[in-house]
Write a protein that binds this DNA or RNA. Structure first.
Length: 390
DNA sequence: CCAACGGATCATCCGCTAAC
DNA sequence: GTTAGCGGATGATCCGTTGG
């Protein structure tokens, strides 16, 4: 664990911490120097925790110094938050408790599991049987050995992935386990700009949408599929009726096709697909950086390719990266989630002409409780959204 | 329609153990 | 001794349901 923290610090925390942009209402409260109430404190802590997580490369154990940096940054920017002098202690404690709370339900992370085994004592009724405990002890020994000789272990994992990828019957449970175990080395490789081809050769399962979602989950503690589905469903109406897309050929085609069907599921499928296709148009971005319909992919950044979007039976969604097909998926929710995940998982910077669209999506994905920043609120008004979800 | 109820979820506090 | 991390207890808050 120590070497993980040391590395995080070395890679990501060289500069002192810079506070994130807080949601609109928090910003107002901070500007007014109003003493935060219970829920406002929680939102500040929640936001800081989410922001810190981005810099921890999948680890959920910030160092004491990192906690100190964050709380110091907060109190320096807003001294009134330390009204009684013991603010530092209280905010630090709240932040630590929040991380602890985030770790609590996690069962697929060896660092978390190791600490649960180490410190997790159960009083009263024991949930674990004796056999489970001894199994855990065996696991601890295994993990300790892996940490010591990481490089040869990583090599072994990579060979295993390559072999397993060729098999017809794959052991997905073992794949999950090994993908978790190699997260650290993989992030290091991706972070140091290892060519995509090499990354995919070493970790071929990253081509699978499910593994991309899982990696996204490990990195951000966020269920990208669930969030994407929610966004598409709640904003579909807004997007399809936005004045910037009423004359769009895709929208016109959708209206035509919808007249030919009455089946609820079919109509929903078409609407969701159209929502995906029109998203960049709504935000004035370049649609060809987002989704290509019935054409050849020309861009290197992650992009979706859709064939026959409104024909449920022959409709095809594929995710492209560096002009190569990475994976084919079945529906537009999975496709959009995979597209967003690809930017994160492969560390691709967002193209300028797609920034508004991705900003919109990520604002909703990472902060469901206050789904828009002031600039986003303005943007949504500007593009003609009737009822931004709150 | 809305107030009251009750379960679920969440934040916080406490007491404990392991490590130093 | 102190500190970090755990599970559990407790109280607050959210949210869906029910009954007037």
């Amino acid at each position: 664990m120590k070497h993980v923290l040391a590395r995080n610090k070395a890679l990501q925390w060289t500069k002192s911490y810079v506070l994130p942009e807080f949601p609109y209402d928090v910003k107002c409260m901070l500007a007014e120097q109003k003493c935060p109430d219970h829920s406002m404190r929680i939102r500040i802590i929640e936001f800081l925790q989410a922001d810190m997580t981005k810099y921890l490369e999948g680890s959920l154990y910030p160092s004491t110094q990192q906690y100190n940096d964050v709380v110091n940054a907060l109190l320096q920017a807003h001294p009134f938050l330390d009204e009684d002098g013991c603010g530092f202690f209280l905010w630090k404690r709240a932040l630590k408790d929040r991380f602890k709370y985030v770790r609590r339900p996690i069962e697929d992370d060896e660092q978390v599991m190791r600490n649960k085994c180490k410190f997790g004592h159960r009083r009263g009724q024991t949930k674990k049987s004796l056999t489970d405990i001894s199994f855990d002890e065996v696991k601890i020994v295994q993990i300790k050995e892996e940490t010591v000789c990481l490089d040869s272990e990583a090599d072994e994992h990579i060979n295993w992935f390559q072999q397993e990828y060729m098999k017809t019957e794959k052991d997905w449970k073992e794949i999950d386990k090994r993908m978790s175990q190699t997260l650290e080395i993989r992030r290091k490789l991706i972070g140091s700009r290892t060519p995509l081809k090499d990354i995919l050769k070493m970790f071929p399962f990253l081509k699978c949408p499910y593994q991309m979602f899982r990696e996204f989950q490990l990195l951000t503690r966020t269920d990208i599929y669930k969030k994407t589905k929610h966004i598409l469903e709640s904003y579909s109406e807004n997007i399809l009726t936005s004045f910037s897309v009423v004359d769009n050929p895709i929208n016109i085609a959708l209206q035509e096709k919808m007249k030919q069907h009455t089946d609820e599921d079919m109509l929903k499928h078409m609407k969701m697909t159209a929502t995906c296709l029109l998203l960049p148009d709504v935000f004035g971005d370049d649609p060809s950086l987002f989704v290509i319909v019935n054409e050849k992919v020309q861009v290197s950044t992650p992009v979706l390719e859709v064939k026959n979007p409104f024909n449920v039976d022959v409709c095809e969604f594929s995710l492209y990266l560096e002009k190569e097909k990475l994976t084919r998926v079945d529906d537009c929710v999975t496709a959009l989630a995979a597209l967003i995940a690809a930017f994160h998982v492969f560390g691709v910077e967002c193209p300028r002409r797609l920034s508004q669209t991705l900003n919109f999506l990520e604002t909703l994905i990472f902060d469901m409780h206050s789904p828009y920043f002031p600039s986003m609120k303005e943007k949504l008004k500007e593009v003609g959204f009737q009822h931004p979800v709150t």
